[in-house]
Amino acid sequence: CHSECLGNCSQPDDPTKCVACRNFYLDGRCVETCPPPYYHFQDWRCVNFSFCQDLHHKCKNSRRQGCHQYVIHNNKCIPECPSGYTMNSSNLLCTPCLGPCPKVCHLLEGEKTIDSVTSAQELRGCTVINGSLIINIRGGNNLAAELEANLGLIEEISGYLKIRRSYALVSLSFFRKLRLIRGETLEIGNYSFYALDNQNLRQLWDWSKHNLTITQGKLFFHYNPKLCLSEIHKMEEVSGTKGRQERNDIALKTNGDQASCENELLKFSYIRTSFDKILLRWEPYWPPDFRDLLGFMLFYKEAPYQNVTEFDGQDACGSNSWTVVDIDPPLRSNDPKSQNHPGWLMRGLKPWTQYAIFVKTLVTFSDERRTYGAKSDIIYVQTDATNPSVPLDPISVSNSSSQIILKWKPPSDPNGNITHYLVFWERQAEDSELFELDYCLKGLKLPSRTWSPPFESEDSQKHNQSEYEDSAGECCSCPKTDSQILKELEESSFRKTFEDYLHNVVFVPRKT
């Protein structure tokens, strides 16, 4: 048989008469490798580009789960590009990614509803959504962080984005990388972005840091009482949809009607710091009717980097990364020049730590249904340095008659930039024990000054392991946590139920 035959053949030295091919099969003959313009397919066939392209389009058009959109890589027609490569849609070739590779997620039936953290986790790592997304989240724990972890990498949506009755959302900033909504599939009414009845939605994105392009379709905003109209108009300008909307697409009466839409800028007039305090004062603000001013709200939190936005980490279910302080308005003076500047002394802060701070007014709604208010920009203030805590785990070892090696770990709280350490030492008198000992005694162990690591005695271990207080009263049991108490109650309830079950099964009433 021919060298490319495997198993047997019907005619000697003829690659077209093989029972099976050793390498690849091409047009009725066995070959060692697939010549151009053919590609290896499933490690035994040679196919042309049209064959591989037909497989790709067949799966793409069917949208069946589990099928493969075949691509070409290293002269092979394979189910998908290997790690580190992405497909070129024009020629199906796998090309190296520039940075992290995109991950295209194809949605069944063309859309997916995100109504819980669990459903959001199914899209973790996706960068391109081939379909439409509907966000409908009523509640949950730590929602802002969970949504950002699972949806934060999405850069492109081919269909539309719909935010509907998501009472738990305060902001859409968890879509931190969303840059493009194509609108290839539109919501009824030709809408590519749809926001309806979101009672706590206050911000779409921080438009000073976020760009969003909507290729096709219109915007729809109705019944978002805490979303200011200025935020919607800003989205029109940034996304390129200005002029597409009709009169009733953006409701003037049901958007922002319960919001404090600040239209003035508060400026800080005085800032002073110490290692654990920050004193702030800002310019006074009074609405047209000074009785509408209820006070100020001061927001602050630790910020290692200057990239904080107002609604980071917030949701309507209680999660809030900001510390909020309510401040009463100052006494009002008739003389504008003698107006008191409101302020606040922030206490209990960490030394040498940068804080993000902003302040906003708290006002009631005027009778004319106009909203007044003022808010400052987010500023960054760093507390002063102070003395560091003591170095940890000092170790001293003498390696000769004239040297001592000293080692330690950095302090747990540096409280500033540590530039150097101060080492103090003092000579001590020799131990009298060394002169009084009889060095001729056998088995004498000389006193040693070398360091030995501390260890816990058996008594201390027994005390720590004991669940009861000892007789001397030195140790006591740790208080039980809520989960331990709940577990004990469940076990007790189970024992009672099981005992009742045994009584009912074992003891049967005697027939009379």
Rank of each mutant, 00 (worst) to 15 (best):
Lys103Ala: 13
Lys103Met: 06
Lys103Tyr: 04
Val104Leu: 03
Val104Met: 11
Val104Pro: 09
Cys105Trp: 01
Cys105Lys: 04
Leu107Met: 07
Leu108Val: 10
Leu108Asp: 00
Glu109Trp: 15
Thr113Cys: 15
Ile114Phe: 02
Asp115Pro: 06
Asp115Leu: 09
Ser116Arg: 13
Thr118Met: 14
Thr118Lys: 09
Ser119Lys: 11
Ala120Pro: 02
Gln121Ala: 06
Leu123Lys: 01
Gly125Val: 13
Gly125His: 15
Gly125Met: 11
Cys126Asn: 00
Cys126Gly: 00
Thr127Gly: 15
Val128Lys: 05
Val128Thr: 11
Val128Asn: 01
Gly131Asp: 01
Leu133Lys: 00
Ile135Glu: 00
Ile135Arg: 11
Arg138Asn: 07
Arg138Pro: 04
Gly139Ala: 13
Gly139Thr: 09
Gly140Ile: 03
Glu146Pro: 07
Glu146Arg: 15
Leu147Pro: 01
Ala149Lys: 10
Ala149Gln: 14
Ala149Tyr: 12
Asn150Ala: 04
Leu151Ala: 07
Leu153Ser: 13
Ile154Pro: 00
Glu156Phe: 11
Ile157Gly: 00
Ile157Thr: 01
Ile157Tyr: 00
Tyr160Ser: 06
Tyr160Met: 10
Tyr160His: 08
Leu161Gly: 01
Leu161Asn: 00
Leu161His: 00
Ser166Ala: 11
Leu169Tyr: 12
Val170Gly: 14
Leu172Tyr: 02
Phe174Cys: 15
Phe174Leu: 08
Phe174Tyr: 10
Phe174Arg: 02
Phe174Trp: 12
Phe175Gly: 01
Arg176Phe: 06
Lys177Met: 08
Lys177His: 14
Lys177Asp: 08
Arg179Leu: 09
Leu180Met: 12
Leu180Val: 12
Ile181Val: 03
Ile181Tyr: 00
Gly183Phe: 06
Glu184Trp: 07
Glu184Ile: 09
Leu186Trp: 04
Glu187His: 08
Ile188Gln: 13
Ile188Lys: 04
Ile188Arg: 12
Ile188Asn: 09
Gly189Lys: 04
Asn190Lys: 06
Asn190Tyr: 04
Asn190Leu: 06
Asn190Glu: 08
Ser192Pro: 06
Phe193Ile: 10
Ala195Gly: 07
Asp197Leu: 05
Asn198Glu: 00
Asn198Ile: 02
Gln199Ser: 04
Asn200Pro: 05
Asn200Val: 14
Leu201His: 00
Leu204His: 01
Trp205Ile: 11
Trp205His: 13
Trp207Asn: 05
Ser208Gln: 14
Lys209Ser: 12
Lys209Gln: 12
His210Leu: 09
Leu212Gln: 03
Thr213Gly: 08
Ile214Val: 12
Ile214Gly: 01
Thr215Tyr: 08
Thr215Ser: 10
Gln216Ser: 10
Gln216Leu: 13
Gln216Phe: 13
Gln216Asn: 05
Gly217Asp: 02
Gly217Glu: 01
Phe220Asn: 07
Phe220Thr: 13
Phe220Asp: 03
His222Trp: 08
Asn224Gln: 04
Asn224Met: 10
Pro225Trp: 15
Lys226Leu: 09
Lys226Ser: 05
Leu227Gly: 00
Cys228Glu: 02
Cys228Asn: 01
Leu229Asp: 12
Ser230Tyr: 03
Ser230Gln: 01
Glu231Gln: 06
Glu231Leu: 06
Lys234Met: 00
Glu237His: 15
Ser239Lys: 08
Gly240Leu: 14
Thr241His: 11
Thr241Asp: 10
Lys242Ser: 10
Arg244Ala: 09
Arg244Asn: 07
Arg244Phe: 15
Glu246Ser: 08
Glu246Asp: 09
Asn248Val: 08
Ala251Arg: 06
Ala251Lys: 10
Leu252Ala: 11
Lys253Met: 10
Lys253Ile: 14
Lys253Cys: 02
Asn255Glu: 06
Gly256Trp: 04
Gly256His: 12
Gly256Met: 13
Asp257Glu: 04
Asp257Trp: 09
Gln258Asp: 04
Gln258Tyr: 09
Ala259Ile: 15
Ala259Phe: 11
Ser260Met: 08
Ser260Ile: 13
Ser260Gln: 08
Ser260Tyr: 13
Cys261Asn: 02
Cys261Gly: 02
Cys261Ile: 02
Glu264Gln: 05
Glu264Leu: 06
Leu265Lys: 08
Leu266Lys: 00
Leu266Pro: 00
Leu266His: 01
Leu266Glu: 00
Phe268Gln: 01
Arg272Lys: 00
Phe275Leu: 12
Leu279His: 05
Glu283Arg: 14
Glu283Val: 15
Pro284Ile: 05
Pro284Cys: 04
Tyr285Trp: 02
Tyr285Asn: 05
Trp286His: 04
Pro288Asn: 07
Asp289Ser: 02
Asp289Pro: 01
Phe290Thr: 07
Arg291His: 01
Asp292Gly: 03
Asp292Leu: 06
Leu293Cys: 04
Leu293Gly: 06
Leu294Trp: 06
Phe296Val: 13
Phe296Leu: 10
Met297Cys: 11
Leu298Ile: 07
Leu298Asp: 00
Leu298Met: 13
Phe299Ser: 03
Tyr300Gln: 15
Tyr300Trp: 07
Tyr300Cys: 11
Ala303Ile: 09
Ala303Thr: 14
Pro304Met: 15
Pro304Ala: 07
Pro304Val: 04
Tyr305Trp: 13
Tyr305Ala: 05
Tyr305Gln: 14
Tyr305Gly: 11
Tyr305Val: 14
Asn307Asp: 15
Thr309Ser: 13
Glu310His: 11
Glu310Ser: 11
Phe311Arg: 07
Asp312Gly: 14
Gln314Phe: 04
Gln314Glu: 05
Asp315Gly: 05
Ala316Glu: 15
Asn320Met: 09
Trp322Thr: 02
Thr323His: 13
Thr323Pro: 04
Val324Ile: 12
Val324Arg: 04
Val324Ala: 14
Ile327Leu: 09
Asp328His: 10
Pro329Leu: 13
Pro329Arg: 14
Pro330Gly: 07
Pro330Val: 04
Leu331Gln: 09
Arg332Thr: 10
Ser333Asp: 11
Asn334Lys: 12
Asn334Glu: 09
Asp335Leu: 09
Asp335Ser: 07
Ser338His: 08
Gln339Lys: 12
Gln339Ala: 12
His341Ser: 10
His341Arg: 11
Gly343Pro: 11
Gly343Leu: 07
Leu345Thr: 10
Met346Val: 09
Met346Phe: 10
Met346Glu: 13
Arg347Thr: 06
Arg347Leu: 09
Arg347Ile: 09
Arg347Phe: 06
Gly348Ser: 14
Gly348Pro: 11
Gly348His: 09
Leu349Asn: 01
Leu349Thr: 11
Lys350Phe: 12
Pro351Val: 06
Trp352Arg: 01
Thr353Asn: 08
Phe358Tyr: 04
Val359Ile: 15
Val359Trp: 00
Lys360Phe: 04
Lys360Leu: 11
Thr361Trp: 04
Leu362Ala: 12
Leu362Gly: 02
Ser366Pro: 14
Glu368Arg: 14
Glu368Ile: 12
Arg370Ala: 12
Thr371Ile: 09
Thr371Trp: 07
Tyr372Pro: 07
Gly373Phe: 06
Ala374Tyr: 05
Lys375Val: 03
Asp377Leu: 03
Ile378Tyr: 09
Ile378Pro: 04
Tyr380Ala: 05
Val381Glu: 08
Gln382Thr: 13
Thr383Met: 03
Ala385Arg: 09
Asn387Thr: 13
Pro388Arg: 00
Ser389Ile: 00
Pro391Ser: 00
Leu392Trp: 15
Pro394Ser: 11
Val397Lys: 15
Val397Gly: 07
Ser398Arg: 01
Asn399Cys: 03
Ser400Arg: 12
Ser401Ile: 15
Ser401Ala: 15
Ile404Ala: 04
Ile404Cys: 15
Leu406Phe: 15
Leu406Pro: 02
Lys407Phe: 04
Trp408Ile: 15
Trp408Met: 01
Lys409Arg: 14
